[in-house]
Design a binder for these strands. Structure first.
Lengths: 242, 242
DNA sequence: AAGTGGTCTAGACCACTGA
DNA sequence: CAGTGGTCTAGACCACTTT
């Protein structure tokens, strides 16, 4: 009757149940729109007490994997798209108009070694590549080069380039049923190549902020590799340290 | 018998008890070296159940204010000094030798408006100013300008400049009983002035990373204002996004 | 062995959301 | 009003650290 856990029985129950829930979310059993069952039902399903199930769920909330709302339910968390690095740019007020996205080039190709490694794919695996600009009005704020595993993102191989949205993550969710939950970024300062300088409207060798991002799903599997470049002069980053 | 809480009685018990504990930590009742009483004693002291006290304590752990170790006790958390932005510099391996710190100038003066505001002091309040270099061997990695409220940091006004340590936060704790718990930083990219270029050994107008940090104690009160500058070419920053 | 935090249970009752 | 998560209790027992 109670759900069987396959993980190491020496681990605490709340850890094993949490891992199992993450697997089920990754398998698509629940999405950001369909709530998980109430904690009482889940506790019964796993044959554990409500108190323990509450610990499982609040740990997953702390880990950024779920969101709970009193009276409504427990939902799979989607990445907050405003955490994009673009919110660190200085243009206008942060509550102002959203920068637009423009895919200039989309190719289906095979992954070079570094990108394949980042995405945890065999070298030469098929990927969808997007070259993209973010703009505010006429002004180009950033250049982006995006790589996606072709098997998970097949619908994007045929999508007309003008149909790509300003925000890609909601589109990944709608068209490809892939939800971005977390990401790691590495930021460095570089100087503009001739092409970058032309596209961004800055001098050759002007300092750029370069951000390499790896976006992941609930289970931590790599979904998207993205390199963004933006003029350093426009950049401010705030962080809270503990 | 049970400790009286002064905060708004409509708030949940675990919040009120948590606030009270933070006040007691800020008042110096416990330090990173003297453990808090065991959860059972604390629960009794406040007249609440152990389960509720456990929630209070684990919330404070999640907020970065306490550290718990099974079998040992519950301690006030100190800032992990390795979270300093210097760990983001590319020189050598991160586990290599620690950069040294050299106070070039120490003055006791009054706070200018922006610094006073950041430190939440009245304009013109007395502060201790430090101008400092961080070096690895002969090489200057970063310049720092530090401002500290003179009342809380009186012992530093007389300390010979050569007695300042490589890491200041442990010294704040030992000499001034001030523990840094959290900080916020704002990072921007600037270009080197003539003085900065000379001190850092880069070209005039070379890109610099400028980090403005405000360090706080458990209660969130401002302890230290610090502006650091380091050559942008040396800088890498990794972040995990949720 | 004594003392600490960690796991887990089995409830009662409250606060909020939506139909 | 039914159904959801949030608060709080009162325990038992386990795992780890220190003496």
């Amino acid at each position: 009757m109670t759900r069987t856990l396959r993980s190491d029985g020496r681990l605490p129950l709340h850890v094993r149940v949490g891992d199992d829930l993450v697997d089920r979310i990754a398998a698509g059993e629940w999405s950001p729109r369909t709530p998980l069952p109430p904690e009482r039902s889940l506790a019964e399903e796993y044959g554990i007490s409500v108190g323990t199930m509450r610990k499982v769920l609040s740990d997953l909330v702390a880990a950024g994997r779920l969101v709970r709302e009193q009276g409504r339910g427990t939902y799979v968390r989607r990445a907050d798209f405003s955490t994009s690095f673009l919110r660190f740019l200085r243009h206008g007020d942060p509550s102002g108009p959203l920068p637009t996205g423009h895919v200039l080039e989309r190719t289906v190709t095979t992954a070079e070694a570094p990108v394949a490694e980042a995405l945890d794919l065999p070298s030469g695996a098929p990927i969808v590549r997007l070259h993209r600009e973010r703009r505010l009005g006429d002004r180009v704020l950033a250049l982006e080069d995006i790589a996606l595993p072709a098997d998970r993102f097949a619908p994007l191989a045929d999508l007309p380039v003008e149909d790509f949205a300003d925000l890609l993550y909601p589109q990944y969710e709608e068209l490809c049923a892939q939800t971005v939950t977390t990401a790691s970024e590495v930021m460095t300062i570089t100087t503009a190549t001739a092409d970058e300088a032309r596209a961004l409207g800055v001098d050759r060798d002007a300092p750029l902020v370069r951000i390499e991002r790896l976006a992941r799903d609930v289970r931590g599997d790599a979904l998207e590799h993205r390199i963004s470049r933006t003029p350093a002069a426009d950049f401010t980053y705030r962080m809270e340290i503990q």
